[in-house]
C-alpha cells in the first residue's frame, strides 16, 4: 500500500514537472516583457514552440556524429530524473533513496557533459566557444553547489533531500548565518547554471556573448525541442530546490491526507510564481557582465558556500 502510494506521488510529480516546465519559462518571459512595457508573448507560447519544433524535420550538419543525435535525449533524461527527485509538493517519493543531493548535482553534471560534447561535435567555432565557457562556469558553479550541499547536510545530518526539507521545516532550525550564506550562494549558482542575466542571456544570439545558445546553435527540430524542454526543466528544478529547502512550508509529509496534498500543490505553484517573478525583476534590473567577470561572481558564491560549511564545522562540538 505504502509502495503504491509512493509510486503514485512519484508519477504525479513527474507529470507535473513535464507540464509545468515550459509554462514557467513562459511566465518569466511574460513578466519580463511586462516590466519592459512590452506586450510580450503569452505564457503558453513555449508549449506552442515545443509542439511546432517536434513536428519539424531535423536539419543535421553534414559531419555530425551519433553523439550529436543522442545528446539531447541524454540531457533531457538526466535533467528530468534529477528534477523528479527533488520534492516539489510532497515528500515520500518512491525513488528518493536512489539519489541524494550530491547525486542530483552530479546528474546535472552528466547533462552538462553531454551538452558540452554536443557543442564540439560539428567542429564550428561557436559550438566550441559555448562548450569552453560552459565548462569554465561549471568548474566554479559545481563546487559552489557542493559546498551548499555540505552546509545543508551538515545542518540536517543527512544528504537526503527529504530529510533536509523535513529538518528545515522543524522547530530547531532557528536563524543561522550559514543558512543565509547558503541561500545567497544557491541563488548565484542557480543564475549561472540556468544561463540567466548577468552570467548569460537566454534571449541573445549576439555572437560573442552567448554561452548556452552557442552550444545549441546548430540544433533544429525535435532535437532543439528536447533541449529547450530540458533547459526549462532545469530552471524548474532549481526553483523547486530553493522552494523545498529555503521555503519548506506546505510540503505534504508521508501519510497525510488528500487536503495536505492539495495544499502542497497550491503552495508549490505559488512558490514557483514568486521565484519566477523575482527572477524576472532581477534580470530586468541587471546588465550582463563580461565573461571573465563571471569567475569573480562564481568565486564569491564558492567562497560563501565554503564559509558556510566552515562555520558549521567550527561550531559543532563533539
Amino acid at each position: 500500500m505504502e509502495l503504491i502510494r509512493e509510486a503514485l506521488i512519484q508519477m504525479a510529480q513527474l507529470v507535473l514537472l513535464l507540464l509545468l516546465a515550459p509554462g514557467l519559462t513562459g511566465f518569466v518571459r511574460s513578466v519580463k516583457a511586462k516590466l519592459l512595457r512590452r506586450k510580450g508573448p503569452p505564457i503558453r507560447q513555449p508549449y506552442r514552440d515545443l509542439l511546432k519544433l517536434i513536428r519539424k524535420e531535423v536539419v543535421l550538419a553534414e559531419n555530425a556524429s551519433w553523439v550529436y543525435r543522442v545528446a539531447p535525449y541524454v540531457i533531457f533524461a538526466t535533467t528530468l530524473i534529477a528534477a523528479s527527485l527533488v520534492p516539489t509538493f510532497a515528500t515520500g517519493l518512491l525513488f528518493s533513496p536512489a539519489a541524494d543531493l550530491i547525486a542530483i548535482v552530479a546528474l546535472l553534471g552528466t547533462a552538462r557533459f553531454a551538452l558540452a560534447l554536443a557543442g564540439l561535435d560539428i567542429g564550428t567555432s561557436f559550438g566550441g566557444i559555448g562548450s569552453s565557457r560552459e565548462m569554465m562556469i561549471a568548474s566554479l558553479a559545481e563546487p559552489a553547489m557542493l559546498m551548499i550541499v555540505f552546509t545543508l547536510s551538515l545542518l540536517a545530518g543527512s544528504t537526503q533531500l527529504w530529510m533536509v526539507a523535513t529538518f528545515l521545516q522543524g522547530p530547531d532550525v532557528g536563524l543561522r548565518v550559514s543558512l543565509a550564506m547558503a541561500v545567497v550562494a544557491l541563488i548565484m549558482v542557480a543564475i549561472a547554471e540556468n544561463a540567466r542575466i548577468p552570467v548569460d542571456n537566454p534571449a541573445t544570439h549576439l555572437e560573442l556573448t552567448m554561452i548556452h545558445e552557442a552550444m545549441i546553435l546548430e540544433y533544429s527540430g525535435r532535437h532543439l525541442a528536447v533541449i529547450e524542454a530540458a533547459a526549462s526543466l532545469k530552471l524548474l528544478l532549481y526553483f523547486s530546490l530553493i522552494g523545498c529547502v529555503f521555503m519548506p512550508w506546505g510540503l505534504a509529509a508521508v501519510g497525510q491526507g488528500f487536503t495536505a496534498y492539495a495544499v502542497g500543490l497550491g503552495t508549490y505553484v505559488a512558490k514557483l510564481a514568486a521565484c519566477g517573478f523575482l527572477l524576472a525583476v532581477f534580470e530586468t534590473g541587471t546588465a550582463k557582465m563580461r565573461v571573465f567577470r563571471v569567475s569573480d561572481f562564481l568565486g564569491a558564491a564558492l567562497m560563501l558556500g565554503l564559509l558556510a560549511a566552515l562555520l558549521l564545522f567550527v561550531s559543532q562540538t563533539t
Binding site: E57, V58, E62, N63, I122, T124, L217, G221, R222
Partner: peptide, 30 residues
C-alpha cells in the same frame, strides 16, 4: 535504468508521434 528508460521513451514518443524526418545540410555556424 531510469535515465535509459526516460531517454528511450522520449525518443520513441517523439519519433512515433511527431516526426522522424532528417536532412543533412552544411553546418550553419551563424
Amino acid at each position: 535504468v531510469m535515465i535509459a528508460g526516460a531517454a528511450w521513451l522520449a525518443a520513441w514518443v517523439i519519433h512515433r508521434g511527431a516526426s522522424h524526418a532528417l536532412r543533412r545540410a552544411p553546418a550553419w555556424d551563424c
